[in-house]
Nucleic acid binder design. Structure first.
Ligand SMILES: [Zn+2]
Ligand SMILES: [Zn+2]
Ligand SMILES: [Zn+2]
Ligand SMILES: [Zn+2]
Lengths: 134, 134
DNA sequence: CGGCAAGTTTACGTAAAGGGGAAGCCCATG
DNA sequence: CATGGGCTTCCCCTTTACGTAAACTTGCCG
């Protein structure tokens, strides 16, 4: 919440700018990830800089495989702890570390599977060359 | 398809053994990932060793983030190329490499985000210690 | 004033990967 | 013979992250 008169952006522009749809933005508000946005007299949503940053942050986390539900939990603890910086960040770090671990494991397993397949293939190829029967 | 008389396992046992439900196994058959299984006179499904291996392979790929749809594509090319080993493995490798790349990227991004947050936190902490006002 | 773009709400649809239950066979067992 | 498992097929339910259509305002332009 920045109180000074700053440039507001409308939902359509913002969506286009971020490469998402307006539906997505409204959806994030709908599930409480965004908090009710300011409205124009006519009822149109508008966003200021820190709200834009928040959406960008959400998108970044999403891209990294963190689910909206997990973000909700984060947002909730964030709100309940009343924006205390040093209580909230460890939570984020915890979730991040958890995901980093998962992704790391996945990478290891994928790579070893790849190796298995490559070796398997090599073995078969050798066999086929040795005795070109059948 | 192994023709020799070998031990067959029933769906319930198999599911329990693999830590999944019978529904899952039937589902894999339903979407064509498994090909129709042998049936007993009474109509009960039974599986031989290579079918079990196939399911295990599916589960392994799934665990690594490959979708059932992607596996279907693999299975399709596999079938259409009539089990020619050297035509099918490159396909698997291709998909695997693609996923390895994705996962690798994700890992990098997650780690750098983590670093950002840690640094951000450090900076704020320093600020709070310098001037304990407000 | 007519019209169009862009906004709004409400509400139903979708894809993925199964979960779970009903209704009905088959078969071993007390 | 009855009963209890375990199996079968249907078929609807669930979650996640939106898509999409309907019907309605607002704002602005000629
Ligand atoms: Zn603000
Ligand atoms: Zn997670
Ligand atoms: Zn076989
Ligand atoms: Zn994929």
């Amino acid at each position: 919440m920045t109180t000074t008169q700053e440039p507001l952006i409308q939902i359509g522009k913002l969506a286009k700018q971020l490469g998402i749809t307006t539906r997505t933005i409204r959806y994030y508000e709908e599930i409480g990830l965004m908090g009710p946005s300011k409205r124009s007299s006519g009822g149109a949503r508008s966003y200021d800089r820190d709200e834009v940053l928040r959406i960008k942050f959400i998108l970044k986390l999403k891209e990294l495989g963190i689910s909206l539900k997990e973000m909700q939990i984060l947002a909730d603890t964030f709100d309940s702890y009343n924006q205390r910086f040093d209580t909230i960040t460890p939570q984020v770090l915890e979730i991040l570390d958890l995901h980093i671990g998962k992704v790391n494991d996945k990478l290891t397993n994928l790579s070893s599977l790849r190796d298995d397949i490559v070796n398997y293939r090599r073995r078969i190829a050798a066999l086929l060359e040795e005795q070109p029967s059948a």
